[in-house]
């Protein structure tokens, strides 16, 4: 399993990277963590003529706080997400969920931006981004623009990114005070993608749900936000019956592809299980 030949480029700024992508056109691919791209190249499913390695662009790494925005560089590794004190304090869903992605070594290379930009519904960060109301910052030949997560994921391997664009930042806000959160991921073993997974963020006010996000991984062509499931719980004092109803609503929007992990019926049922378990766990964390 050997990748085909290519030219290697290592820009040191976003501007330089965007310039390279513009001049090289569709024969160029961005190399982030490489753990999706390099295996595809070894299988000769992808044969780019140019690789633009964005690992040495300092501005793409790390987490900073600007006002009430928490800005995560797209090339921040999963392990850096897990270790980051700001994220652990303000958006603890992200570090907790990142622990369930791939394996320890891969988490050193795999990045939050790479996971999102690939547009793979099996990746975990898309659903997490939806659950955190993330805003994607995209640099392209015509400058930068911002796209909310809700408008970013357009289809399988299809996002709001153009060929000459680079996802540079993911911006989130701190969870509401006392919010609970959970990411429940059913997988066959360490390193596997989700058979079904669900992210939940919930806050209560006077015993009733004042904020809720329920999002799903690998249960359709893109990550999904289960609006109807959220509606079942919003404003309510939650009980087991409502949780079951919410799960049923979430299952209605599932359209998973059959693979060795299971058929559509199983994956949809597992979506229901993960939704219920994530809601329960998130509620238990509400403070």
């Amino acid at each position: 399993m050997i990748p085909p030949s290519f030219e290697y480029h290592r820009p040191s700024s976003v501007e330089e990277a965007v310039g390279l992508l513009s001049s090289l056109g569709s024969e160029a691919k961005i190399l982030a963590g490489g753990h999706s791209l390099l295996p595809m190249m070894k299988l000769r499913f992808a044969e780019p003529e140019h690789l633009v390695d964005i690992n040495r662009i300092p501005e793409l790494k790390g987490v900073r706080v600007v006002g009430d925005n928490i800005i995560i560089g797209a090339m921040t590794s999963e392990n850096a997400v897990i270790a980051d004190p700001v994220l652990n304090e303000k958006v603890p869903l992200l570090p907790e969920a990142a622990k369930l992605i791939a394996d320890p070594q891969v988490r050193n290379r795999g990045t939050i931006g790479g996971d999102i930009a690939h547009g793979d519904p099996a990746n975990d960060h898309p659903a997490l981004a939806l659950a955190c109301d993330a805003i994607m910052t995209i640099a392209g030949p015509n400058g930068t623009r911002q796209v909310p997560a809700s408008e970013f994921f357009l289809g399988t391997y299809w996002t709001a990114l153009e060929e000459t664009d680079i996802l540079t930042e993911i911006t989130v806000k701190a969870f509401p005070q006392g919010a609970g959160y959970a990411y429940k991921k059913l997988k066959r073993k360490t390193g596997d993608w989700a058979t079904a997974a669900c992210a939940v963020v919930v806050a209560l006010s006077g015993g009733s749900v004042s904020h809720i996000r329920i999002t799903l991984t690998n249960l359709g062509p893109t990550a999904l936000r289960a609006h109807d499931a959220e509606s079942v719980l919003m404003g309510q004092s939650v009980n087991d019956d409502l949780i079951r109803q919410a799960a049923a609503k979430a299952m209605e929007i599932c359209d998973p592809a059959e693979d060795l992990r299971g058929d559509a019926e199983y994956k949809t049922a597992m979506a229901g299980q993960m939704v219920q378990r994530a809601i329960n766990e998130a509620l238990a964390k509400v403070s």
């Binding site: 059913l186 066959r188 058979t195 992990r261 299971g262 199983y266 049922a269 597992m270």
Partner: peptide, 8 residues
């Protein structure tokens, strides 16, 4: 005895 098969 995968989870999938046991679930079935």
């Amino acid at each position: 005895h995968t989870a999938y098969r046991i679930w079935k």
